[in-house]
Design a protein around this nucleic acid. Sequence first.
DNA 1: CTGAAAGCGCTTACAG
DNA 2: CTGAAAGCGCTTACAG
Lengths: 336, 336
Amino acid sequence: MAGDEDIPGKRPTIYDLARIAGTSASAVSSVLSGTWKKRRISAQLAERISRVAEEQGYSLNLQASLLRRERSRIIGMIIPKYDNRYFGAIAEQFEAMARARGLFPVITCTRREPELEYEAARQMMSYQAECLIVTGATDPDRIAELCAATGVRAINLDLPGTRMPSVVSDNFAGAQELTRVILSRTHEAFGRRAPLYFIGGRPQDHNTRERRRGFMSAHAEIGLRVPDGNSIVRGYSADKTAAALAELGIPHGSGVFVNSTIALEGFVRWLRAQSPPLELRFGCFDWDPFAAVHPQNVGMMQQDVGAMLSRVFEFIQSAPNGAPTVEVPCRFRALD
Amino acid sequence: MAGDEDIPGKRPTIYDLARIAGTSASAVSSVLSGTWKKRRISAQLAERISRVAEEQGYSLNLQASLLRRERSRIIGMIIPKYDNRYFGAIAEQFEAMARARGLFPVITCTRREPELEYEAARQMMSYQAECLIVTGATDPDRIAELCAATGVRAINLDLPGTRMPSVVSDNFAGAQELTRVILSRTHEAFGRRAPLYFIGGRPQDHNTRERRRGFMSAHAEIGLRVPDGNSIVRGYSADKTAAALAELGIPHGSGVFVNSTIALEGFVRWLRAQSPPLELRFGCFDWDPFAAVHPQNVGMMQQDVGAMLSRVFEFIQSAPNGAPTVEVPCRFRALD
DNA sequence: CTGAAAGCGCTTACAG
DNA sequence: CTGAAAGCGCTTACAG
């Protein structure tokens, strides 16, 4: 019992446990990994091994274990932000759903920097991830190529690519519905039908394009033409949005379509700073519980994170050919 | 060139690269890990190896590399939520700061479930983390014990423990300042000085106790006694908070101290549902950019995530004895 | 019912 | 300037 088994700073291995329990490393390994019934190890030995492992504060060396195993069960995700209700919810639910399926989730945050996205994806390959979920990536196709080269299954979430399966919201339909609501609520409140403003997003990105298409379509339905000047599409940044709004000068009684809660942050800051107070109505594509109670907010289009992730895991299982894109409906949420 | 080096599904190893480049695995390893100058390998060979690695889509097997290395440079963090501005900011900044220091951050979300917290900590040991940041843990001392047994350095963040160094906000001073502001703004608005309500948190947890102490102290300063019935401290849950508020019935012209944005979510939902509208003033311990523009919000106490994480990394470097607790000042933020 | 042995893909002293 | 070899801590056929 006494002696050299307690070298400080040195973590015990299965060989240490075997020596202490008076058995072999093979037996220890199979007991600790739960495969001992099929090896028909006696319950007594199993019990002794477990006790010794406990006493010694043993913990498996995952690196060694994974190196030997054929499958890693690691599933990676790269995501632009944590500090945002949409992406925060994605990260949180992804971890829970992965664990529920017996996988080991590893997430890393890439801040919408293409180089970081690529480096993070490479690191996931190094971790031996079996699968990579690429969320909101600036250049998903470049990452797709990397994954293809290493034989890692990859799936886009939030933003689609052309070289791997993608799961995105039905941005067109969602934006169309949201635009209709803002138009009608603005009409109710101010008695006039004027084209809305569209604030936020990147002109090139798929989501912004689709949402603008839905926005335009809802205007066309009621015979309204949207002037080119009614848009501020200068990227996902609250600061830039607020600055641009100050230049634009939105008149009293307007309606505003805000694209993403990130742009909304700049918008509400700007709105709050107006003096005298500016009366208008807005809606936002994306959900935030505090933004939802803003008195001038007519409602928010919530992306269905749970449903999107379910589709992602279905793609993982079914391994479809080509690069199909699945669109998931959004849910409109208002407080009234 | 042609031949068997392109077995599909099999990732190339340094031995494959060595064979193709006509050199040894040792040379490949040192070139790819950047130690080749000190091995005085010819620039020409280094160049050839790099090219072959590129062509073959080589990526390092981190498991094998870490198994062999003496240090992992992995730094783990367990955190209760991602989907929250405070914890989201912690996760995001932690990753960036760890990377800037040449460490590999691994974060996992434990949903305030003590069993998950413990399991996640065990998994970090298995990953060979050199260090574990324990954020907002329900039972930090149990995790401290686990880390001590495996020789992993551990540091508490957000909630202190008695067995490892801790970094927390100065909850007492922050709550005192916030309470003073709410008291004075309520007085300005409604002309009366009445004790505030305290909404949210867990009665046992350190942060809630300290914040209540600051709350009480600010009342005592101006000779106000707070009735026992003025508190709702039923945990961190928006739903429970909203339900409890419905029972309590806060009168017109009151002031409310909301403890955490999680409780605030329930509070604003409840407030918005009141008819006729309830006029009161509130402040919140924790920052949220949308909650900040709420018309009845007098300001928010923002925890200084950057400063807290800097202290955490200082603790990691200095490896202090015992279990010192550092308190970091908060910043009051109002929009007016 | 159990153990000895090979080997996963690296890194690093060691020997030229 | 470069390579052969040992060994990190496991898992898993294989042989009793």
